[in-house]
Write a protein that binds this DNA or RNA. Structure first.
Lengths: 249, 249
DNA sequence: CGAATAGTGTCTCTCAGACATTATTTC
DNA sequence: GAAATAATGTCTGAGAGACACTATTCG
């Protein structure tokens, strides 16, 4: 990086003198609520000078160079502020930057996506907190509903999630521990939007070795099911093949 | 993004007033030369005020808000300046940002990685161009050799490349068109660092449907081989399963 | 005609998908 | 004991890996 100044006419001046883009961080926070994949949005303030007043947007904001030591810290901080969750699954999604995506000027945003269990959340509704709410992803996608380029970012996040769910244990992060295999299967089915065979599912999950038994959970059904915890919460397991029904691809 | 100012004490002032991180773009440019995976590096200038003088680094630099309209444009521009290549395979790798990665202050870099055919490159060695050279990846990895946090970025790029090569047609972008299946197989073997079975390889490539025949190429060997071009240069094909030897993981 | 590489054929064994069956709890 | 859900068992077919074999060119 940074091997030359942006243009030769500024070569002699110190770096701070030429204009920098705004740097922001946004977080796409997913959870499964009411058997639907949902995303957390915040409502933009309705005050002069703020773009997209009243519109819903992904939680995020400017990097504060005096508070945040890394971009990931910044993402983690914003997630914690909105949800109270301290140890989510957090993965970098990508970055979006252009001259036109923010009416205030050239800006670049670094985007993370997070998976959290709905039960762990206590939505922030404090002092200066704007409205915060869950929205079903299926109702948002395709619509041009969000502020900035957040529709495109949300779409990219959903695509990334759905594709990784085909071959990783990501949905386990959508459940509070301990959870049962039928619960986990339901997470897969909700995110993928299609049913999954029970027998193959169990074989696959247990063979992947990312679950450790945690005693029986007197659950939501007649017969109690065996509970499991994650062996390693820092990263999902990767399966050698994708889920897929016989004929499909 | 950008739903609040970075801290409440600055709330009333216009956004331009609070300090922004530096925004840069770096490009990890891969090619296969002499049967080895290589990466393009540039030598940092040895002048006062420039960090890491004389050290090798990934090509990149500050975003120029007056020239670049998007981050990807900026990456594409930097790649073209160094190599002369106009239509590489280009994919966003991620971003790295922290208070300490650049001694000049809080900085965030957006990183792309590119695959190009060695034959298409004409290394820039013009006016203000610093030294530019190819380095074998295997000789760099593990060493603490590069400027900034570029060792870590390079490592992440190599990991991403190697893992995607297991289930995509990415290595096809390392060859000039038309290319033969044996040539393509060699690209896979070089990147993966292990031999690949010929028969299975051919079945897989042809079944994936991303190749179109382009006549015989009087090649580098005794018997001429059938040449192929890519059906779609904008994205790699994705295979349903990974490459992997029998006993492997 | 032999060496070298391109390209094809065949066998086997794994494993995921489909579905039937058994097990354990509540009411 | 009936209903509901958890958990296991069995069969089968697609397909990847391994390797043997054929085809075509050059010297």
């Amino acid at each position: 990086m940074a091997n030359t100044k942006p243009s030769s006419s500024r070569r002699a001046r110190p770096a701070r003198e030429f204009p920098q883009p705004y740097t922001t961080v946004d977080v796409v926070i997913f959870s499964v609520i009411d058997n639907a994949l949902q995303v957390l949005l915040v409502q933009r303030p309705d005050v002069p000078g703020e773009p997209y007043p009243g519109r819903w947007a992904l939680p995020g904001g400017f990097v504060d160079v005096e508070v945040d030591t890394t971009l990931e810290d910044c993402a983690r901080r914003k997630l914690h502020e909105k949800t109270g969750v301290k140890s989510p699954y957090l993965e970098q999604l990508g970055s979006w930057g252009s001259a036109v995506r923010d009416p205030r000027g050239w800006s670049a945003t670094h985007v993370w996506f997070a998976l959290i269990a709905a039960q762990d959340v206590s939505l922030a509704k404090g002092a200066n907190a704007a409205e915060v709410a869950w929205f079903a992803v299926d109702a948002l996608i395709g619509k041009h509903a969000l502020a900035f380029d957040h529709d495109a970012i949300l779409m990219a996040a959903v695509e990334r999630l759905r594709s990784k769910v085909e071959y990783t244990s990501l949905p386990a992060f959508l459940l509070p521990e301990p959870f049962t295999l039928p619960q986990l299967q339901r997470m897969y089915e909700v995110v993928l939007g299609r049913p999954v065979d029970k027998s193959g599912f169990r074989t696959r999950m247990l063979a992947a070795g990312f679950l450790s038994e945690a005693g029986y959970v007197a659950g939501e059904s007649n017969r109690p099911a065996l509970g499991y915890c994650l062996v390693d919460r820092s990263a999902p397991a990767v399966f050698p093949r994708t889920f897929s029904p016989r004929g499909g691809d």
